[in-house]
Design a protein around this nucleic acid. Structure first.
Lengths: 364, 364
DNA sequence: ATGCAGTGGGAACGCGCTTTCCCAACGCTC
DNA sequence: GAGCGTTGGGAAAGCGCGTTCCCACTGCAT
């Protein structure tokens, strides 16, 4: 038994397919009440489910919104995904998921797949890359998005503009003030920590990471501090762990050089470009016998929900991730506020909040 | 400029749409090399993207797999989602996401939506409910799934069978031995903890939670211990926190009754039905001035990745969440191993691993 | 009674693609 | 060179639905 079709329903109700269509999907023209009732009963009896593919084909609107993330299991992305999913639900749309690991080539492919499915909108979360080796991939991605927009699609980008994507109708940006917030974090940390700073950044060219690193540096500079050394590692927990091991080694030699003065304020404050890296670094330092915040201070970025109960409480910058997902989706798909018109709009303002917790709080 | 169509490509290449179709999607019949080249160039020139909707309509196979979860931001589900996404990608399919909060009515709706989109397969993660008030919802969900299967759909269920879903072709189950593993955990804990046990369970009727609670009790019984009291709370961090507050109160009165004997082994071991509840409970106990494992032991379930760096290390049962997602998807969509045939199959075996860490380790 | 606007319903086309069926041209054997 | 099987390509019929256009019929004014 294949799924029953509109024609079958119409036949059972003794009407034409046109009429059946009219009653079953609220067209402009309302058939008479008697007919409507017959059709509805027939549909019920047959367990009729309209074929969304056919509907989409006929109306050329699919009710789909595509979501592109690096990794859905990453709490950063899953939080955004929740926001996207929320709005999609409100708007009676379904979300189509693609994970790309941040590879522009894969992202291009995902955009093409969404375009093929005639998704009404595409939301791209996850940092762009500005690495030279990604330049071509980015260009292709931009071209693909251009085409998608030109064909009437809407795209919402979280974070920063697609490198090379031109100002186009239907292209929306939810800007995250990574740089400013990182600067603010640096300023606050500089106020209470007189010692050195070290930054654990993601791979060079990952724009979100670069922005945060740059912001942190400029915050330090504004506070009259020397620039911090930057360690590069992969933008996840494992990367943080690796960097943490390196830092542990460094702490050890420093401790040997300058014999232990118990109770002294730790000489090092670490800033990791995101929370999971911070957690990884913390784990590494602990594994090497150091304690936070006794032996080193550490701060992250994002304020991942699952990590809020971490001990010591991780100093970080709270980002309204779910809201960011909501806004990005609304800007593309919504018709109400947030669906700002026009070229390459900057979308509604997102702001974060520096949140200092125990991990950077030195107490004698 | 609307997206270009196959017909346009064909015209530009000077061939019929049929031929264009044959070259652009690897049909059984291969046109001559000269023609193929012309068509391919035409497609390239026009930036042709096949309309997946139309393809799906014509072939009646959409290349979609639907995923139903309670909440995509919950690390339990996002880990599973990663597995699902993984094999979908391997199989050149896209995943369609629906979040339902566990409400059977919403799940039924999601299934209908997937059916409407003619998804090739549906994966349902997230616990079923056996509550009486959900009985009708469950029945409707089962009916919807039945219909979907009868129309040739495949469904993969994570955890436990849908209440009321009949044995059907295309209905696959990835069983998670919650009960056995909980019993094993209880046995190991009972071996080192002579005191009382308390269980923080999810709402009664949530099958996953019920299974774990029951398993834990039977493990205690097998070890000759009395049954543990069961506290009910919502199946998330907030629920764990609430329960934790209640337990803190209890610890406080106990401490007053029996004056502090420093260094004594804690009298209470808490088992929370999942990790995030355990974390919530821990947070509450800490907020009330208690320490883990000094004042109480605690264990969870799932071994959520993000929580592995938690301190003290949370004793738990490791579940291969990503693998579970993979298996569930493979069983429905794969053609290789894992795609077991036949009625209501029990699928490949999933197993977990009791993992004891500091949170249940009492050291004087 | 004839004209008109207005209404409820059906016929038919198109959405973009796949696939079956059919036809022309080719190479081969006897 | 007639008959045959084989190949490469086109024509056309759907897939299931939305929608436009058209027709028959009603109720009203002329």
């Amino acid at each position: 038994m294949a799924a029953s079709t509109l024609t079958e329903v119409a036949r059972l109700a003794g009407v034409s397919p046109a009429t059946a269509s009219r009653v079953l999907n609220g067209s402009a023209r309302k058939p008479g009440p008697g007919v409507s009732e017959r059709v509805r009963q027939a549909a019920e009896a047959l367990g009729y489910i309209p074929n969304a593919q056919a509907q989409a084909l006929a109306k050329s609107s699919s009710g789909l919104v595509g979501l592109i993330v690096h990794d859905i299991a990453d709490p950063y992305f899953s939080a955004i995904a929740r926001g996207v999913q929320d709005v999609a639900r409100e708007q009676h749309k379904m979300v189509l998921l693609a994970t790309t690991g941040g590879t522009p080539a894969d992202e291009k492919e995902a955009v093409a797949a969404f375009a093929a499915r005639r998704a009404d909108a595409i939301v791209i979360a996850g940092s762009r890359s500005s690495r030279p080796e990604d330049a071509q991939g980015n260009a292709e991605l931009a071209a693909e998005l251009d085409r998608y927009c030109r064909n009437g699609g809407h795209v919402g980008v979280v974070g920063q503009a697609i490198v090379g994507a031109g100002p186009l109708d239907g292209y929306h940006l939810v800007e995250v003030p990574n740089e400013e917030l990182a600067a603010e974090l640096a300023a606050k940390l500089a106020a209470s920590h007189p010692g050195d700073f070290v930054i654990i950044g993601g791979p060079e060219g990952l724009i979100t990471s670069d922005d945060r690193v740059r912001g942190f540096q400029s915050g330090l500079a504004a506070a009259g501090r020397p620039a911090a050394e930057v360690l590069r590692a992969s933008f996840n927990r494992a990367g943080g762990y690796d960097a943490g091991l390196a830092l542990a080694e460094r702490l050890r030699t420093a401790r040997e050089a300058e014999p232990v003065n118990e109770g002294a304020q730790p000489g090092l404050c670490i800033f990791a470009a995101n929370d999971v890296m911070a957690i990884g670094a913390t784990a590494a330092l602990r594994a090497e016998g150091f304690r936070i915040p006794r032996d080193a201070l550490i701060a992250g970025f994002d304020d991942i929900e699952t990590l809020r109960d971490f001990r010591p409480g991780l100093s970080t910058v709270r980002l309204p991730l779910e809201e960011i997902g909501r806004l990005a989706t609304l800007s593309t798909v919504g018709s109400g506020p947030g669906a700002t018109e026009g070229h390459h709009d900057d979308g509604p303002a997102v702001t974060g909040q520096v949140t200092l917790r125990r991990s950077t709080e030195w107490t004698a």
